[in-house]
Structure formats: C-alpha cells, structure tokens
C-alpha cells in the first residue's frame, strides 16, 4: 500500500504535467497550422512604374514565396465603372505595375517593417502596401495565444515540479533512520536513494504511457472534445509522431532532475 501511494505521488503530478505539455503542443501546432493557412491569403502589394524582376526581390532576402505581376485588365475592370472610354484608355496607359508578393512565413510586425524598408530600396518601386493594420491585429492575437499557452505550461510544470520535490523530501524524511544506518555501513547517499530513484524512473515511464494513451484517445475521438464547426477546419487536425519521444524525455528529465536536486541538497545539508 505504501509503495502504491509512493508511485501515485509521482505518477499523478507527472501525468498532469505531461498532459499539460501535450495541450501546449496541441495549441502550439493549431496556432502554427492557422498561421500557415492564413499566410496563403496574406500578400504585400508592390507598386512600380517599371518592370521589377523576381530576382531583384529574391536578393533582398525577405523570405519571398512568390512574386507575381497582377493583371492590369482585371484591375481596370474593377475601376472602370463610371469612367468614359478615354479615361479608361488613359488609365490603362498611366496605371503602374502592381505586384503581389507572398511570403514563406507569417511575419512579425517588426519583420514586416524591415521587409517594407528593404523593398523601398529597389529604385523602381514607388509604393509598398503591407496592410499593416489587419496584419498587426492578427499578429497580436497570435502573440497573446502563445503567451497564454506558455504561461499555462509554465504554471503546470512549476506546480508538478514543486509537488514532486515535496514528495521526495517527505520520502527522505521518512527514511532518515534507514539512510543513517546504511551510511554507518559505508553506503553513499546515492546508494541509499536507490528506491526513490527507481520510483522516479518507473513513474516517468508510467506517466509517459498514460499521457500517450490520452493523446491517442483524444486524437481518435476529436468529435467528443471539439465542436463540429471547428472540426471542419484543417488546422485543427494535428499530428504527434515525433512528439511522443519528447514526452518520454520530458518525463524522465523532470523526475530525475527533481530527485537529484533533493539528493544534492541533502548531501550538502549534512
């Protein structure tokens, strides 16, 4: 019974931490997927009197995905309403070139400013429109989401870590006499701590298994956890392939680091 409660005191905080880690990963991936999906719809418009070569933009190293000249006829088609034939002809003659510039990654507001500045160094370019207001609103939302996810993850890790730390300290307190007797016979503190180290390692394995089963269940039963409306969006669907390994690593790291910290503290206290 004592052994079971010792294992539970490790497995519960570790599992809570790993589940919060998977939530952190899931939200992070959803946000990344969402960023990738909206980057397809986001474009900078570059205006020039002369032709601008794609190579010239590529040289600027701004993370360009595509650079395309917009069809003048389509632009004029949108503008010609209410204009007479002469005005349309004049417009056709005077209208500068409009280019659509798409980026590989969704840029930060600062990056966007840098891109705008770099584009303006090309002499042929007379105007750059980055649609900063719309962009900044969306980027602020991402930043806020990231911050909330990070704070949430940090708080859970901190609480799990403190809970583990407390349980390990209690174990040392409970086993004070046993450790003293073993040390009288020449055992090192590390040797005396074998049971708690074994508990930490096995609990790390059990907690990882619990977390992985939970992820597997959630991913295969998304409709239980997410509304049908959201399920229609592709960015909601995330994959965890290589992250299972990181769950194992995190679990082992936290449990071993916590135990070693207490052992080192005990050593220097004596």
């Amino acid at each position: 019974m004592k052994i079971i409660s010792r294992y539970l005191s490790f497995v519960i905080p570790l599992s809570a931490m790993l589940l919060s880690y998977t939530m952190y990963l899931t939200l992070y991936k959803v946000v990344e997927n969402y960023k990738n999906s909206i980057i397809n719809d986001y474009a900078i418009v570059v205006v020039s009197q002369e032709t601008v070569e794609e190579k010239a933009i590529d040289k600027l190293d701004i993370g360009m995905r595509s650079f395309k000249l917009l069809d003048k006829d389509i632009i004029i088609e949108n503008l010609k309403e209410g204009l007479n034939e002469n005005s349309v002809k004049l417009l056709n003659k005077e209208l500068p070139n409009f280019y659509q510039l798409k980026l590989i990654d969704y840029p930060s507001s600062k990056t966007l400013e840098t891109i705008k500045r770099k584009l303006k160094t090309v002499s042929a370019i007379i105007e750059v429109e980055v649609f900063a207001k719309d962009h900044n609103q969306q980027y602020f939302m991402f930043l806020m989401l990231y911050d909330i996810i990070n704070i949430f993850f940090f708080v859970i890790v901190l609480f799990s870590f403190l809970t583990l730390l407390k349980h390990i300290k209690i174990w040392f307190y409970e086993n004070e006499n046993r450790i003293y007797i073993m040390q009288l016979h020449g055992a090192s503190l590390l040797y005396c701590s074998k049971p708690i180290i074994t508990t930490a390692l096995l609990s790390a394995i059990y907690s990882s298994i619990i977390a992985i089963i939970a992820i597997w269940y959630i991913l295969n039963n998304l409709s239980i956890f997410i509304s049908d409306e959201l399920l229609n969006y592709n960015y909601i669907k995330v994959e965890f392939n290589s992250d299972y390994f990181s769950i194992f690593v995190l679990s082992f790291l936290i449990s071993i680091v916590t135990v070693l910290m207490v052992i080192i503290k005990q050593k220097y206290e004596k």
Partner: peptide
C-alpha cells in the same frame, strides 16, 4: 570515510 566504514562493523 565511506570506504573505511565498509571495513567496519558497528
């Protein structure tokens, strides 16, 4: 000290 104690009985 650990090695010394390993060679002692108390």
């Amino acid at each position: 000290l650990m090695n010394l104690r390993k060679d002692m009985g108390i």
